[in-house]
Simulated scan of single mutants.
Amino acid sequence: MTKTVLSVDDSASIREMMAFALEPRGYRVVQAEDGVDGFNKMAANKIDLVITDLNMPKMNGIEMTRAIRADARFDGVPIVLLTTEGQREKMLEGKSAGAVGWIVKPFDEQKICGIVKKMIG
Rank of each mutant, 00 (worst) to 15 (best):
T2A: 14
T2P: 13
K3G: 12
T4M: 05
T4E: 12
V5N: 06
L6C: 02
L6M: 06
V8R: 04
D9T: 05
S11I: 14
A12Q: 11
E16F: 14
E16G: 10
M18T: 15
M18K: 06
F20I: 15
A21N: 11
L22E: 07
P24V: 13
R25K: 15
R25Y: 10
R28D: 15
V29D: 10
V30A: 11
V30Q: 07
Q31D: 10
D34G: 04
G35H: 09
G35L: 05
V36M: 06
D37E: 08
G38V: 02
F39Y: 09
F39V: 08
F39I: 07
N40H: 12
N40M: 14
A44P: 02
A44G: 12
K46H: 13
I47V: 09
I51F: 02
D53C: 08
N55T: 11
N55D: 13
P57G: 06
G61F: 02
G61S: 04
E63R: 12
E63S: 10
R66E: 14
I68L: 06
A70Q: 09
D71H: 01
D71Q: 04
R73C: 03
D75S: 14
P78M: 02
V80M: 03
L81F: 00
L82M: 13
T84S: 14
T84A: 13
E85G: 03
E85F: 01
G86A: 12
Q87K: 15
E89Y: 10
E89S: 14
S96H: 10
A97Q: 08
G98P: 08
V100M: 13
W102T: 07
I103G: 02
K105R: 06
K105S: 08
D108R: 12
K111G: 05
C113N: 12
I115G: 02
V116C: 08
V116W: 01
M119S: 09
G121K: 00
